[in-house]
Design a protein around this nucleic acid. Structure first.
Lengths: 200, 200
DNA sequence: AGGTGTGAAAATTTTCACAGCA
DNA sequence: TGCTGTGAAAATTTTCACACCT
C-alpha cells in the first residue's frame, strides 16, 4: 500500500488536477509543488510511487496523470455513501455538492430524531437511526460519514462496519475504534483548532 | 517547536483528557494509547516532549497533565475566532458549541450575502464580507475558520492575515498560501474522502 | 510490582543531486 | 534544454528495551 503521507498528498493532487484540467494540458512538478505548498521533488517522489512512467519534458499530461491517480487511489467508480447524524453539520455534509462530483454518491441520511428528518428539504432519502443496520446493508453502502454526538459515535461505527461499510470519515470528536481492514479518518474540528493554534 | 505529529497527537490527547477528567484522577500511557489507537510508548514519548516529569506509578495525574498540555499547546487563554462564509457548513461551524468550551470564542461571522446573514438565528454578530478587514482588526480576531467557496478562499485568507489573524482553519478545498509564521490547517472534506477510500 | 522516562535501534520520510530521456 | 525518475544521504519518526522511581 502507498505510504500514508504520500496517499494523503496524492489525494490532494488529484483535486488540484480536477481544477486545472480545463485550463492546462500539461503540468510540471514545480507548478504542482507551488500550488500544494511543497517541493518539486516531493511531488515527483509521490508520483513516482504510482509506477507510471516516461513523461516528456513538458511535465505531466494532466489527463493521464489524473486517470493514473484515480486508478491507484481507487477512484475509478462512484462510492455509495451515507451520512449518519443530521444536525447542522450532518445536514451541511448531506448537501455538500462537491461530494457528488468527486464520485461519492450520498444515498442515505440517518438521524435519531424523526421530526428533524421530516423537515429536511433534501432529495436524499433520510431514515431513522434505528433502520441504520438494514438500510446500510440493503443499499450496499460502502462509505459512511459520521456526524453524531461523541457519545453515540462508537456504536454507530460498529453498526456500520457490521453491515459492510469499509471506509469511515468521522466528524465527531470521539476516538473511534474499527477492526483492521476498515479505513478510518478522523476530522475533529476542535482538535484541529487546538493543533493550529499550537503551531503559531 | 514540537514535532508536527507529536503536536497533532497531543491536541487529541488534550481532548481525551477533558472527557475523562470527571471520571478518573489518574490515567496511564497504556489507557491513553488504547483510546487513541496508538501504543503506550508513543504516548510516553509525546508526553516526554513536554519536559514535565516525575509521575508516580499510578500513571499521569489527569489535571496536571491537562494543564501542562494546555501550557505547551498555548491553550491557557481563549482565542478570538471568526467564521468566514455562512453557507450551511459555515453556519454549522458558527453554532458548534464545542468550540466555546474548548476556548475558541467565536466573535464574528461574515458572508457576502446580506439576506442570508439577516435570516440567521444566532447570537453571534454577523457582518457583510466587505467589512471583513476592519472588523477583524477592530475585534482583534486571532483565529479564523474559512468556509467560503474555493474561488474566494485565497483572497479571504490574505485579508485575514493582513489584519492580524495568526491561525487559519481552512474548510475550502482551495490550497491556500500564507506567509511564514501563520499557522494553517486544511480540512478538505473531499480530499479526506478520497484518502480514506484509498486506504481500503 | 507497576508504572514512567529515555537512549539506542529500526523504520520511514524527506531532501538532494544528477543521470537520462524527449 | 528542461523536465522527470531515482539512488543515496540526511532527517525525522517510530519502536523497543530497560533503567529508574514510588
Amino acid at each position: 500500500m502507498l505510504p500514508k503521507n504520500t496517499a494523503e498528498r496524492l489525494s490532494k493532487i488529484y483535486g488540484v488536477l480536477q481544477t486545472i484540467s480545463k485550463d492546462a494540458e500539461y503540468v510540471t512538478s514545480k507548478e504542482l509543488a507551488a500550488v500544494m505548498g511543497t517541493t518539486d521533488f516531493t511531488i515527483r517522489k509521490d508520483i513516482g510511487a504510482l509506477n507510471i512512467m516516461n513523461f516528456g519534458r513538458k511535465g505531466y499530461h494532466v489527463e493521464e496523470l489524473s486517470s493514473a491517480l484515480g486508478r491507484v487511489l481507487q477512484l475509478t467508480r462512484p462510492y455509495r455513501t451515507c451520512v449518519v447524524g443530521l444536525g447542522k453539520l450532518g445536514t451541511a455534509v448531506l448537501d455538500y455538492e462537491a461530494f457528488k462530483d468527486a464520485g461519492f454518491d450520498i444515498v442515505a441520511g440517518f438521524d435519531i430524531n424523526l421530526n428533524k428528518v421530516e423537515r429536511l428539504h433534501t432529495e436524499i432519502a433520510v431514515y431513522h437511526s434505528s433502520d441504520l443496520d438494514h438500510i446500510v446493508k440493503s443499499k450496499s453502502v460502502e462509505v459512511a460519514i459520521i456526524a453524531v454526538p461523541q457519545a453515540s459515535a462508537q456504536e454507530v461505527a460498529t453498526t456500520l462496519v457490521a453491515n459492510g461499510v469499509k471506509a469511515i470519515l468521522n466528524f465527531s470528536p470521539a476516538q473511534i475504534k474499527v477492526p483492521k481492514g476498515i479505513a478510518l479518518y478522523n476530522m475533529d474540528f476542535t482538535a484541529a483548532l487546538r493543533f493550529v493554534v499550537s503551531q503559531i
